[in-house]
Amino acid sequence: MSLVHAGPGRAGSAGPVHPAGGRGVRRTIAAYAALAKPRVIELLLVTTIPAMFLAGREIPSPWLVLATLVGGTMAAGSANALNCVIDADIDKVMNRTKRRPLVRDSVPRAGALVFGLALGVASFAVLALTVNLLSAALAVATILFYIFVYTLVLKRRTPQNVVWGGAAGCMPVVIGWAAVSGTVEWPALVMFGVIFFWTPPHTWALAMKYRDDYERAGVPMLPVVATPRHVAKQIVVYSWVMVGWTLLLAPATSWLYTAFALVAGGWFLFYAHRLRAAVERGERTRPMALFHRSNTYLMVVFCALAVDSAIGLPVLGLPFG
């Protein structure tokens, strides 16, 4: 039988792939991409670039930024994909996560595992070959911490899971700093702390909204095991510490960053206190409003850090190095 294409729809033709086949490939690619949780990665990358700016107090090499972002994206994608494999049972019973690829069987479990491991190996190779060995080692350490410490140990056992497990989400700033300087100095640790103290208010606001989901899944998030009043109080406490921590970068920056950190901090604290006041009065709360504002807050603070570093205004104190 001839396999020469003899027109659309002709049986036995070897013409272009049927549209359904093309859609199937696209769906598969999209499913694997969803395992990496790209929306989560976006926020991590927003903090990495300003850290690179601050490390040199100038605009870093575009090629270095690109290589660091590619390697960092692979590392974060690896951690997220492996997390999806481990937490597939949780995702099945949570409304917020029930459309993830492993729950919908759009990706085989073995395929997701191989994908996550391959991304981790690729992230190390990219960073080691194009950036430096320190940033590559930090990326691998972050993946291992996220999987073995947060996902396997903390997440299902303690309401402090996101407090200590959130350290993994703080590492992109350290990796970005190491990519430029080849070291880890005090401003990198301060930026780490900013995100460390930002994570609980950010995550607990989300968990207040999806409390029933977490309870059904058996995940002891703070809003599941504590009263709304206690959760709101903890959000305010961590918010104050977070804002105060941002000011520790003042000696390594100029008045520009400090001004933005103060204004943005005051703005965020207003909404954190408003949430607590609503809880205290027994009114209907809107924790997701604080959740979304926490994303905006972090972007404003770190973008101000990048602009401050790019402009190169005189620092307020002795920087580093």
Score class of each variant (00 low, 15 high):
residue 5 H to P: 02
residue 5 H to M: 11
residue 5 H to N: 15
residue 5 H to L: 10
residue 6 A to Q: 13
residue 6 A to T: 07
residue 6 A to R: 13
residue 6 A to I: 00
residue 7 G to L: 04
residue 7 G to S: 01
residue 7 G to A: 02
residue 8 P to T: 00
residue 9 G to Y: 08
residue 9 G to W: 07
residue 9 G to M: 10
residue 9 G to F: 09
residue 9 G to D: 08
residue 9 G to T: 08
residue 10 R to C: 01
residue 10 R to M: 07
residue 10 R to G: 03
residue 11 A to S: 10
residue 11 A to P: 15
residue 12 G to F: 01
residue 12 G to P: 10
residue 13 S to G: 10
residue 13 S to V: 04
residue 13 S to F: 00
residue 13 S to M: 02
residue 15 G to W: 00
residue 15 G to Q: 03
residue 16 P to S: 07
residue 16 P to F: 01
residue 17 V to D: 05
residue 17 V to P: 11
residue 18 H to G: 03
residue 18 H to V: 05
residue 18 H to A: 15
residue 18 H to M: 10
residue 18 H to W: 15
residue 19 P to E: 04
residue 19 P to F: 07
residue 20 A to Y: 05
residue 20 A to W: 10
residue 21 G to Y: 06
residue 21 G to R: 04
residue 21 G to S: 00
residue 23 R to N: 06
residue 23 R to L: 14
residue 23 R to A: 15
residue 23 R to Y: 09
residue 23 R to P: 02
residue 23 R to S: 10
residue 24 G to Y: 10
residue 25 V to C: 12
residue 25 V to A: 15
residue 26 R to W: 15
residue 26 R to D: 12
residue 27 R to Y: 02
residue 27 R to V: 00
residue 28 T to R: 14
residue 28 T to C: 14
residue 29 I to C: 06
residue 29 I to W: 12
residue 29 I to K: 03
residue 29 I to S: 04
residue 30 A to Q: 12
residue 30 A to R: 12
residue 30 A to P: 03
residue 31 A to T: 13
residue 32 Y to W: 04
residue 32 Y to K: 03
residue 32 Y to F: 15
residue 32 Y to H: 12
residue 32 Y to R: 01
residue 33 A to R: 09
residue 33 A to Y: 14
residue 34 A to I: 01
residue 35 L to C: 14
residue 35 L to M: 15
residue 35 L to R: 04
residue 36 A to T: 11
residue 36 A to C: 02
residue 38 P to H: 02
residue 38 P to K: 05
residue 38 P to D: 05
residue 38 P to E: 10
residue 38 P to L: 06
residue 39 R to Q: 11
residue 39 R to V: 09
residue 39 R to P: 00
residue 39 R to I: 11
residue 40 V to F: 14
residue 40 V to S: 04
residue 41 I to K: 00
residue 41 I to W: 05
residue 41 I to G: 08
residue 41 I to S: 12
residue 41 I to N: 02
residue 42 E to V: 13
residue 43 L to A: 13
residue 43 L to N: 06
residue 44 L to D: 09
residue 44 L to G: 12
residue 44 L to W: 08
residue 44 L to F: 13
residue 45 L to N: 03
residue 45 L to E: 07
residue 45 L to W: 05
residue 46 V to H: 06
residue 46 V to P: 09
residue 46 V to Q: 12
residue 46 V to L: 15
residue 47 T to Q: 05
residue 47 T to P: 02
residue 47 T to W: 11
residue 47 T to N: 05
residue 48 T to M: 11
residue 48 T to W: 02
residue 48 T to E: 03
residue 50 P to K: 10
residue 50 P to Y: 07
residue 51 A to M: 10
residue 51 A to H: 08
residue 51 A to R: 01
residue 52 M to T: 12
residue 52 M to D: 01
residue 52 M to A: 05
residue 52 M to L: 11
residue 53 F to C: 14
residue 53 F to K: 03
residue 55 A to E: 07
residue 55 A to V: 12
residue 56 G to V: 06
residue 56 G to K: 05
residue 57 R to L: 11
residue 57 R to W: 13
residue 57 R to F: 01
residue 57 R to S: 14
residue 57 R to E: 01
residue 57 R to I: 02
